[in-house]
Each structure stands twice: as C-alpha cells, then as structure tokens.
Design a protein around this nucleic acid. Structure first.
Length: 610
DNA sequence: TTAGGGTTAG
C-alpha cells in the first residue's frame, strides 16, 4: 500500500518535472526504509533523470545492487534528457560487459533516439541489426524511433521502408516521417504525407512547418502556418510560433514579423524563452536592432541563447562596442558563453578592426571557458587578422590550426588579398585551394574571381569552362525590398517589374547627380572581360540598386528603405548607396550575406570596413 | 521505463 503510494507520487513528479517534490519523496522513502523495494529504485532513477538531476540519477544507478534492463532504460533516457546523447551511446555497451544484460525494446528506442540526435547512422545501423534479431523486432515504438533516426540522418528511403512496416501507425511515427521529409528539403512529399495522415495534430503541423523553415523555404512555411490555423488547429504550445518567427527572420520581413509577434502576445507565449529568443533574432535580422534590444530587455529569465542572439545581432549591425558590453553583462549575470557567443564576439571585433581584443577573446575561449575552437572560430580569427592587413599572421593561422581549411577559410584570406591588392598571394592561395578541393563548386568560383580581379581573363575563361564541365553554377545575385504589404525580388541585369521605366529613370537621374558630386564607378568589381562602358552598365543593373530604387518609388515617404541581398553587397554599390542616401535624404538599410549596412547622411555604419 | 515538433553562428 505504502510503496504503491510512493510509486504513484514519483511518477507524478517525473511527469511534472518537480525536482523539490521528488527530493522530498526520496527522503521519505529512505526514512521509511523502502529504498530497496522494487520497483522504487528504478522509478527514483527515472524521476531524477526526468527532473534534470542526472547526477542524482547516476549516483543511485551506481549504487544499485542488481540492475535490470529497466534500470538501464532509465539511466540511458536520463542522458538523452540531459542532452548528452554521446554519453548515452558510450555507456550503453556497459550493459553487456558489466551486467551481462541484453537490451529490451525500451533500451533500443532510447539508443536509436541518441543515434538520431548525433546523426550517428553507422552505429545506428549496427544496433538496428541487433534489434532485427531480437525478440522485440515487431515493436512499433522501436520502429518509430528508427523512422526518426533515419529521418534525422537524411536516409529517407530507409525511414520510409520502416514506416511502411509499422502495423499501427500513430501520430508519433507519422510526425517523425513528415519531419524527415520537411527537414531534408522534400517539402511536397512532407505535405502529401500530412494530407494522408488520419488525424493531423499540432505536433505534425509543427514538424512540417519547422522542417520547411530549416530547409530554407520560409515563405512556404508561412503559407502552411496560415493553412494550419484555417483548418482549426489550436495553438496550445509555443513550438510552432518560434518556427514562424524564425521564418520571418529568414525573409527579413519586418511587417510579417511584427504581426507574428502580435499573435505570440494574443496566444500568451511571450514568456517562452524560445519564442522570445526567436523574436530578438527576428528583429535583428529585419534590421530593427532597437526592437530586438527591447524584446531582449523584457525577457525575464535570459539564457545563453538570448544573450548570444543579441550579441550576434549587435555585431552584425556593426555595433561592436555594444556586443562587447553585452558580453561583460552576460558574464556578470552568471551565464557561461557557448561556442556561438564567441563566433559573434570575434566577428564583432573583426568588423571594426579590434584586432587585439579579438585575439584576446579567441584565447580566452579556451583558457577561461574551456571551449575548444572549431574551424569556424579559426576562420573568424583569420578574418580578423586578414581584414586588418595582417596577411602573414592570417596565413600562419591556416598553417598551424588543427583543421583542414574549408572554402570559408580560404574565402576570408582571398578577400583580404583583394582588399590589400595582394593579387599574387591571392592567386597562389586560389591555386592551392583548387588543388586541395577540386570537387567543391565554391572553389571554382573563388578561383575565377581571383583571376578576374587580377585581370587574367584567359585563366578566368579556363576556370569557367571547367565549371561548365563539372556543372558548377554560380548563384545569381538577387535583392528584395520589404514594403510591409508587398515585397519585390530583383535579379541583376533585368526586371519584369511594372514600373521598370520609372526605376531606370530614377537610377539615371541619381547617376547624374552622383557624378556631379564626384562619383566615379569602380569597375574593378565587374568580374567579366568587357569594355569599360559595358562594365558600368553591369554595375548600373546590380540588383541592390534596382531594389533600392523600387523602394524609393513605392515606400511611404520618409520611411526607412530595407533591402536584403543574397550575396555580399558589391563595393561600387556600397559607394553608390552612400551617395543615394544623402541625395534623397532617406535611411537605407541593406542586409547582405554577411552583415548589415545602415546608410545615412552619406555614410555607412560599417565605416567601409566589411 | 521507450518513439514525434521550437531559439543563437555557418
């Protein structure tokens, strides 16, 4: 009687994640002397794991006189719960070696979940073979965990094959399969599956929408979110909201983001730290850094992602001092920065030329916070050094770092070579890159651009031919302007826009006024072998200029023009936009592939250093 | 005691 009461209470604590209540119960159980009564020990482990007290769970597990598969399932689940899937996999073999036990269906499901989180498909497949030969090979829950594992590892055929073999498909396995297709860019198959699903719930819709956001089709995700609401799905948790806030961030659609922010308030999920963090990011990515800071200031309990998001936001808007101050505040608030925080911080230093500070932070990351620098951190460091002209030091980083450099690393160095007119070094690096990684499309593009900058057109055409042979395509440059109710996309060199004549007329007028004020086109940014006049024409038709002109024609007078470009803004366009903002007396904000440029009164917030 | 959906960089 007594122990069944405790059992019930322990399960309730595990369900509601009530740490304090759980500890009290444990104390009572010890006091009464029931701590060895089956099945209380395993339930205690389970309770501690679910309440996020892994150490307590481990302590009990180690002390158990006799462990069974339930004890193992509980402790393995506790590691998954604590977001330590690699630990789940590393302790799993002890089940055979120490306790001579075979996994049961619960253990299998937990292990496949861990493999899925880690993308450890090879290990997952090996254990899958054990599962097939086990007495549990018909278990639908385990099969469902396999569907999820293969989906997360991008092996959709395997996932679907297992999905088909599940006799009684519940909402969980449908969702795992939908999520797999959506995340891997196969949205039409994901949508089709959702349509076939007998009872669509908020989980499956969320999996679809968030997967599509992750695979990069944010506008489709927004349309599906609208459809979901039309179909009467009630939003009873905040998950889908953080995804659609993220979608508006990707689209740099400020007005849409504001509307979704209103929905967040209406549904009462302002207090969700996930949603708040997404909102901070959305406002920062939609170039409203003040609104981002406002949301951030109102978060009652900020976590490391909240701080990192605002630091990265400040950094991308060129507010390095703000980013560094925020970092000091974060540390004072007792939060430990993570690897992303340092990417933001070094990036901030890099973009304003704070070389010493950036190097100090890079060293502090290992020394003070025991974070091993990743390749990306080395790339940031290299960017920091090379942007400020320390090309030898930058090359030295490449030579001594414990990673093989990728194209981003070489891109940073190559772009600095161009900036500092060191074309010989650039060509050497590009050649080296080509010899190292001839399969990578970006390698060809880098090489081509480097030769073009040096005016070596024979080599450019040679590389272009190679690109054609290997079917490598350069991503076309495009820009879009967000006018709240509508947004227009412009590609370089053309427009099908109804007001094409007005756009061209306005750009011509502006061109004349700019030239009167001393503008000289910098045709070195045209990477094709053309006559000077043709090069100027190419620059004239760059997508960011078309988008800005459209914004000037259509936006409410006096408002900020917000433009997004998929590639980095070209150097000549950067000069032109400084002239234009001053001629028309408007603020223009351009988000390019790398950062934000706030053009105002003839100047840019990046101080021409980007 | 097991399985599905959310935020920060790139």
């Amino acid at each position: 009687m007594q122990y069944s009461h405790f059992l019930h209470q322990l399960r309730a604590c595990a369900k509601t994640r009530s740490q304090l209540q759980g500890k009290k119960l444990h104390a009572q159980i010890i006091k009464i002397g029931l701590e060895q009564w089956e099945p209380l020990p395993n339930n205690l482990i389970d309770m501690y794991g679910k309440c996020g007290l892994l150490h307590a769970a481990l302590h009990l597990f180690d002390e158990l006189p006799q462990r069974d598969p339930v004890s193992w399932a509980s402790i393995l689940t506790a590691h998954n719960q604590a977001n330590l899937p690699h630990c789940t996999l590393s302790i799993f073999p002890n089940m055979f070696t120490f306790d001579r036990l075979q996994p049961d269906n619960f253990v299998f499901a937990t292990i496949f979940k861990a493999c899925g989180s880690l993308g450890a498909v090879k290990q997952g497949k090996q254990i899958h073979a054990h599962f097939v030969l086990s007495p549990f090979s018909d278990d639908d829950v385990v099969k469902s965990s396999l569907v999820d594992m293969y989906s997360k590892c991008g092996q959709l055929d395997d996932a679907h094959w297992i999905f088909d073999s599940i006799s009684w498909k519940n909402s969980v396995c449908w969702t795992a399969m939908i999520s797999g297709y959506a995340r891997n860019g196969r949205s039409s198959e994901a949508i089709e599956l959702l349509q076939r699903m007998p009872v669509k719930d908020l989980f499956s819709w969320t999996a679809l929408i968030s997967g599509i956001v992750q695979s990069g089709d944010s506008s489709d995700a927004i349309k599906l979110f609208v459809q979901m609401q039309r179909e009467g799905i009630r939003i009873i948790d905040p998950f889908v909201l953080s995804s659609v806030v993220g979608a508006s961030a990707n689209l740099a659609a400020l007005e849409l983001g504001r509307q979704i922010h209103c929905l967040v308030v209406v549904f009462g999920y302002e207090s969700s730290v996930f949603v708040s963090n997404a909102l901070v990011d959305m406002y920062a990515k939609c170039s409203d850094i003040l609104a981002a800071k406002d949301v951030f200031d109102k978060i009652p309990k900020r976590d490391v992602v909240s701080w990192t998001t605002i630091i990265v936001g400040a950094a991308q808007h060129g507010k390095a001092e703000d980013a560094l101050t925020l970092f000091d505040e974060m540390v004072l608030a007792g939060l430990k920065p993570n690897e992303v925080t340092f990417v933001g911080l070094i990036y901030a230093c890099s973009h304003v030329g704070l070389v010493d500070k950036g190097c100090h932070l890079f060293n502090s990351m290992t020394k003070d916070y025991r974070i091993n620098p990743s390749l990306q951190h080395y790339t940031c460091l290299l960017d920091l050094l090379s942007r400020s002209g320390h090309l030898d030091d930058a090359e030295n980083v490449i030579k001594t770092m414990p990673f093989d450099p990728d194209e981003a690393t070489w891109a940073a160095l190559l772009s600095a070579c161009k900036r500092y007119g060191n074309s010989q070094r650039g060509i050497g690096i590009a050649n080296h890159l080509l010899s190292l990684n001839p399969q990578e499309p970006s390698s060809y593009i880098l090489l081509s651009n480097t030769y073009a900058s040096a005016g070596m057109w024979d080599y450019v055409s040679k590389v272009r031919k190679l690109m054609a042979v290997t079917a490598v395509k350069k991503e076309p440059g495009y820009s879009w302007v967000d006018l709240g109710k509508e947004s227009w996309v412009f590609y370089a060199g053309k427009t099908a826009c109804q007001v094409k004549e007005e756009i061209v007329g306005l750009l011509k007028d502006l061109d004349m006024e700019m030239k009167r004020r001393g503008y000289v086109p910098d045709t070195s940014f045209v990477l094709q072998d053309l006559e000077e006049q043709e090069k100027e024409q190419q620059l004239f038709w760059h997508s960011e200029r078309l988008a800005v002109a459209y914004g000037l024609l259509k936006a409410v007078p006096g408002t900020v023009i917000r433009v997004v470009k998929n590639l980095r803004v070209c150097g000549d366009c950067h000069t032109v936009l400084k002239f234009i903002c001053s001629i028309v007396g408007r603020e223009i904000i351009v988000r390019d592939a790398n950062r934000f440029h706030h053009f105002k009164d003839g100047k840019c917030s990046c101080c021409d250093f980007w």
